[in-house]
Design a protein around this nucleic acid. Structure first.
Lengths: 252, 252
DNA sequence: CTAAAAACGAGCAAAAACGAACATTTTTAC
DNA sequence: GTAAAAATGTTCGTTTTTGCTCGTTTTTAG
């Protein structure tokens, strides 16, 4: 059997069994192990399978690999920030939580709150909060961004416009010295702007590393933020900007 | 973490049984306890499982016990139905998938399609489909129903009204002999009605057990369904109703 | 509470699997 | 038919995985 006939069958077997072994395929096709290895390597390169020692498996959980790695990044700091932020939010109020790993950490800390109405455009946050039956969870519509489970686009802003929140917890991709909140995705910027416009109190959560990063799209100015929770001390320039604009700063 | 052929299967067993033991896995795979321990330790490190003395359990965050049990119910039939249904949907079109375990199975089968725009009010479906980068996933807004990850209420219908779908795949809680589709939740009924009104072709997926159940709210009549995919033969009364109303019936 | 039993993790050597390079066979083009 | 190209098989040094020993920690029984 030639290669062109082997590969589809390998995939078929993998789909049925969930996995394939080099030995098993050697028996099945009657060819040398090296040949099977070549097949598997090529199938893995083209994304059809995932290579493992001894064989290959279906690429199942690989979806948000980049994301889950990023989530690990600075996780301790994020949880500390989240705890401080959650402590500023009372029971029995309405809260918006937007996209971001730090915001997700806030969701985790909010699990012990009671009587919240939480609206979110982050599918992971919806999953997290569904554990607490005393929290009503509303999900905005939107296009699903696979990289991080965010819902963005016009549908998201449409939904948000129908609410007025007591609190909004937002994050951003980068922070500039002059107090501008920046983001990578222009579609997300529209969502964030709408959130700010429809919230009484705006909380920004961002760890210190955000000051070292650059992003192209401007969401808002720190002046529109009521509370900024972070982990590392602000630069003098940024601290004085917050002072002037009346933005309260808390350190985790 | 280094991959292994065993790990996906360990997770599968853990999902099914709720827990795994070192001894049980040693028997299952025919390897040394030390090897299983290594696997479990690594799975625990990456958050897939939670290590306990003597084995491992599912992490507390991924419980949803009642739901996942119900999902197992009649699973084989659901997958068969899903496969037949998915085969009727071409590539490069727009599809709506609504709440339901059978509908979720359809989502799994649609993973191999290309160029779809899928809109759903089921958060689990959004998660499933995010694995295929060639499918654009749009989530409707709505109140999150924790029991099954469904998004319901006015926000959901609002979103749906903005689309016109090539195909809609819907399910229901119960089916009556006279061809009425019934549901438990009145809020979901509104969503389902809107879906039907905004779709060119309506596919109903429901296993035979739905005929034995009762539900209070009427969604629609079988006459509004273009294709009904099920597993068991219909009663003569129902079959003749489908005949008269022009509803095509396929058996898995 | 104490002691025995079971389970655990670290380190190490053996075994299995791996990939690269090259020889050989099969297919394809002319 | 031949020659080039592609696929396959073989060899061998390297990497990864696995099983074993042993001292430590956790659970269980009394």
């Amino acid at each position: 059997m030639s290669q062109s006939l082997r590969k589809p069958e390998i995939i078929k077997i993998a789909r049925r069994e969930g996995r394939v072994t080099v030995d098993g395929l050697v028996d099945h096709f009657g060819v040398a192990p090296q040949t099977i290895r070549r097949d598997l390597t090529e199938l893995a390169d083209s994304g059809k399978l995932e290579r493992v020692h001894g064989g290959a498996v279906l690429p199942s959980t690989t979806t948000n690999i980049g994301y889950s790695e990023r989530r690990e990044l600075n996780q301790a700091a994020k949880v500390d920030i989240a705890r401080v932020c959650a402590a500023q939010i009372p029971n029995d109020c309405s809260v918006f939580l937007n996209i971001g790993t730090t915001t997700e950490a806030v969701a985790g800390e909010l699990l012990h709150h009671q009587g919240l109405l939480v609206v979110t455009n982050n599918i992971n946050i919806a999953m997290i909060l569904s554990q607490n039956p005393s929290i009503e969870v509303v999900v905005t519509g939107g296009n699903l961004r696979r990289s991080d489970g965010g819902l963005i686009g016009d549908l998201a802003t449409q939904t948000i416009r129908q609410f007025q929140f007591d609190y909004a917890v937002i994050s951003c991709s980068a922070l500039r010295e002059n107090g501008d909140l920046m983001d990578f995705d222009i579609q997300e910027v529209g969502v964030s702007k709408t959130i700010i416009a429809h919230s009484e109190e705006v909380f920004l959560v961002a760890d210190g590393s955000k000051f070292e990063r650059k992003a192209p799209a401007r969401i808002a100015s720190m002046a529109q933020v009521d509370l900024f929770v972070t982990d590392l001390p602000l630069s003098p320039a940024c601290a004085s900007f917050c002072e002037t604009s009346g933005t309260k700063v808390l350190y985790a």
